[in-house]
Design a protein around this nucleic acid. Structure first.
Length: 416
RNA sequence: CGGGGCAUGGUGUAACGGCUAACAUUCUCGGUUUGGGACCGAGCGAUUCCGAGUUCGAAUCUCGGUGCCCCGACCA
């Protein structure tokens, strides 16, 4: 893509109202637009990143049998009354609305009820299970206080997967598998090194649950973690007991404390929803059984914000290659036509190889080009200039955004 | 939901209760420049968040509203 045709522009200064580093940088670089507190639009660059995050998650979930679907944002009363969650005293952060005929509706903040209900149409035998269904969907939460840029919004994209298993054992096997799947996802997203599977006190249906916490100062949580073993616990739930319950000797660990962001969580739901909504199957003996469930969430915006928080530097964003909006940021450092022509050719060559490249073809000073490239944060900057042209018509210089190191090369050598 | 703070061109800031609301940047035009947000000149752009009040006179003081930010609580 030609940078001259991208409708967004970079800003030198952050907006006064935006304090969170992730939102400051993402707005300055033109990835997102703030619509109102806790509500952000994703602009072309931002959407590219979001889509890459989404695709990585999709690949990993599909690899363990996940089936993608898309549920509705509007939710009806009936199902939620059955699980006793319609009352404001139980769930107080719903956005509410009504049909013209007066029917009360609400905007989805999660999807256990509708999905469990859908499954009653299709599940009747043990042969139908297990099922792993997921979606990427906008969730709405009427937070009393939105904060931290795109890390905690009132409207945000979330991946939620639900497992429908025949038994607690079958569910737990999948639950364990999901721990690995999540860690693989975080590794691919470039935040694997600083993300810990963290023990915490349970949700409503089990004594304990697990969160995935990524270490960054921007976090809302505090965890205690041991670098060597990778064991971590939410500070709120730290006790000898919780370690003992997992068969770990707390005193053998070298626990450090750090602020962290909860980037994902996985829950056992048990039979709560299947009982309330009548989701059963017949086992091998023809006996009716309740389906055993679990839920697994990941906030896409929160992941994107966490990546920015964890990896950016004073010059701007530093994307991992896996989620960068483009693979290369091509900079032509001269207006001279022979050099410009060369850069144009190189741009065409890369596109011919289906390599994603953002080409800064603008007539602006070198300093502006470098500053923008550093701010936007594409990991590899490809430079064409008088210097490189002296070395040959295909010569280029690749500058690493992360550490500033450069290597010389030829376009012809570049592969996907 | 408790507490604190802020609101002035697109953006960031300034202005004692008193002249035509200032400066920087962005943007437009012209010139110069091209390996780190370069320079010179000219120009466009604001009923100072909204509403009331005090006053001869309000960006400035008072009250109400709205929005935004931060701390806490909350957070499947």
């Amino acid at each position: 893509m030609l940078l001259s045709q991208l409708f967004t522009k970079t800003r030198k200064e952050a907006l006064k109202d935006e304090v969170a580093k992730n939102a400051q940088l993402l707005i300055r670089a033109g990835f997102i637009h703030k619509e109102m507190a806790g509500v952000y639009a994703y602009l072309p660059l931002g959407l590219r990143v979001l889509s890459k995050i989404e695709n990585i998650i999709r690949e990993e979930l599909n690899s363990v049998g996940g089936q993608e679907m898309l549920m509705t944002a509007l939710q009806k009363k009936e199902l939620w009354e059955k699980t006793n969650r319609w009352d404001d005293k139980v769930v107080d952060d719903w956005f509410k609305t009504t049909l013209k005929n007066g029917t009360e509706l609400r905007l989805a903040f999660t999807h256990e009820e509708p999905l469990t209900n859908i499954m009653t149409n299709f599940v009747s035998s043990y042969k139908d299970l297990p099922i792993y269904a997921y979606q990427f969907q906008t969730k709405f939460r009427n937070e009393l206080r939105a904060k931290s840029g795109i890390m905690r919004g009132r409207e945000f994209l979330m991946k939620d997967l639900y497992d429908f298993s025949r038994s607690k054992e079958e569910h737990e096997k999948f639950y364990e598998k999901m721990k690995e799947v999540y860690m693989t996802i975080f590794k691919r997203l470039g935040i694997g090194d600083q993300t810990y599977l963290t023990m915490s006190s349970g949700g409503s249906f089990s004594k304990y649950s697990f969160e995935f916490q990524t270490i960054t100062d921007a976090g809302e949580d505090t965890i205690l973690y041991d670098e060597k073993t990778g064991v971590a616990v939410n500070k709120d739930d730290d006790s000898e007991d919780i370690f003992a319950d997992f068969g770990i000797d707390r005193s053998s660990l070298d626990l450090k404390e750090a602020r962290s962001v909860e980037v994902g969580d996985i829950y056992s739901l048990g039979e709560k929803y299947s009982k309330a909504l009548g989701l059963t199957y017949k086992n091998e003996d023809g006996k009716e059984q309740y389906v055993y469930m679990g839920s697994y969430g990941l906030g896409l915006g929160r992941l994107m914000g966490t990546i920015v928080e964890a990896l950016s530097d004073e010059k701007g964003i530093v994307w991992p290659g896996s989620v960068a909006p483009f693979t290369y940021h091509l900079l032509c450092l001269s207006k001279e036509s022979r050099i410009k022509n060369q850069a144009d050719k190189i741009y065409d060559q890369l596109r011919g190889k289906n390599i994603e490249v953002l080409y800064d073809d603008r007539d602006v000073s070198v300093g502006v080009k470098f500053a923008d490239a550093d701010l936007i944060g594409i990991p590899k900057q490809m430079i064409v200039s008088e210097k490189t042209l002296e070395k040959g018509t295909e010569a280029i210089e690749i500058k690493n955004r992360k550490d500033g190191t450069t290597t010389q090369g030829n376009v012809g050598d570049i592969e996907l």
